[in-house]
Structures are given as C-alpha cells and as structure tokens.
Amino acid sequence: MTGFLFEITFWLTVPFWGLMVFAPTWAWTPRIVSSPLIAAPPLVVYTALVAGHLPELWATMSSPELGELREFLGTSWGASAVWAQVLAWDLLIGAWMYRESRRLGLNPLLMGPLLVFTIILSPFGFAVFLLIRARCDTPDRATTVVTRQ
C-alpha cells in the first residue's frame, strides 16, 4: 500500500502543474490554482501514510536529530510521507509563482520552463523566480496592494 501511495502522490499534483505550464492563460487556470486546496490531495496521502505512525513521527520531528531523521527516512512510510509533503509544498510554491508571474505580466514561455524546473528542483526554481520577480516588480508596492492603484 505504501508503494502505491508513493506512486500516486506525484500524479495527484500533475493536473495542477499541467494547467500552470500548458494552459496558463485559460480562464479557469488562475481560479483553480489560486485555491490552497490544490495541496489537499498529496496531504491526504501524507495523512494516510502517517496515521498509524504518529508517535514515531512526533518523536522524530519534535526534537530532530540526524540519526533519527535518517532512520525515519529509511522507512518506506517515512520517505513516502516526506515525498507527499514536499510535493504539496512545491505545488503551493509553484502556484504562488504562477500567480505572481501573471500579476507581473511575465511571458508564459518564460514561466513554463521555470515551473518545470521548479517541479524538479524547487529551491533553485524558486530562487530564480525570486530574482526575476525582484527585477520586474515595482520597488514599493505596499500602497498598491492596499489601494489597488
């Protein structure tokens, strides 16, 4: 069962990534990916994986030590749970990047490959996007967020 949950987790996120990469200008894409509920499918898998292991999970995460964390990740349920968590957070980061790119008017031909890069190596994709965002965004948009002007 753990192997199945591991395998299905990625496929539960693919439709959302697909919308952002291949249909970024479709009217429904921003509506769908603006919801934090897009992270719910992998988090449901996460919950299923850890439900029977909460004491072990709590002990490992409440006072993390390298040896214990390595042991935790050495279990199929632990590695699969972390995988589900990573995919959920990566999807939320990707959705934020997508929304910001639309706000900034960035070309989808730039963002598509960057989102794919983020799927594969999210910290690097996110860092590249932050650099692009810093370059393209207005220096002080605090008043525009409040006044919408």
Rank of each mutant, 00 (worst) to 15 (best):
I119D: 02
V21G: 02
S122I: 02
G78K: 11
F117T: 03
L92W: 00
L115S: 03
W89K: 15
P30A: 11
V21N: 03
P55K: 06
G105R: 10
W96V: 13
A48I: 06
A88M: 05
V21M: 12
P36K: 12
T47H: 05
A81L: 05
L49D: 06
Q85Y: 15
V44E: 07
L49N: 00
A127H: 01
S34W: 01
L110Y: 09
G67I: 05
L49A: 04
S34L: 03
V82G: 05
L109A: 15
L69H: 05
T118R: 03
V128Q: 01
P113L: 09
G78F: 09
Y98C: 12
S35V: 06
T60I: 03
A23R: 12
A95T: 08
P41F: 05
L73Q: 01
E68R: 14
Q85I: 01
H53P: 09
S35E: 11
G52K: 08
F117N: 02
R99N: 12
W89S: 14
L37C: 08
I120W: 04
S63N: 11
R99E: 14
F22K: 08
A39E: 04
D90C: 04
W26C: 08
S63R: 13
S80Y: 07
A40N: 05
L73I: 04
A127Y: 08
W26H: 12
R99P: 10
A59E: 11
H53D: 05
F124R: 00
E71V: 11
R99Q: 15
L69F: 14
Y46P: 03
L87Y: 05
S122A: 13
L92P: 02
P123F: 05
R102M: 15
V50D: 02
E65Q: 12
S122V: 02
W26M: 10
R102I: 15
L121N: 11
A27T: 14
P64I: 13
L110C: 07
L87G: 02
M20E: 08
G52M: 11
G94W: 12
A79Q: 10
P113S: 13
I32N: 07
V33W: 03
S80H: 07
L73D: 06
L43N: 10
G125T: 01
R102E: 14
E71I: 12
V128E: 02
F126L: 15
I32C: 08
A27H: 13
P108T: 09
A23E: 00
F126V: 11
G105K: 15
Q85K: 04
P42E: 08
L106R: 12
M97I: 14
L121E: 07
V82R: 05
M97P: 01
P55H: 03
E68K: 15
A79W: 09
L115I: 06
W58Q: 03
E100C: 10
A48T: 00
L37N: 00
G94D: 10
A59N: 14
P64F: 02
A95P: 03
A59Q: 11
V50S: 03
R103P: 09
D90K: 06
Y98D: 10
A39T: 07
V33E: 04
R99G: 12
I120M: 06
G105P: 04
L121Q: 09
R31S: 08
S122L: 01
L114M: 07
P42H: 06
A84I: 13
V82H: 01
W58F: 15
A48P: 01
A40Q: 00
V21K: 03
V33I: 11
W26S: 13
V45Y: 11
T47C: 02
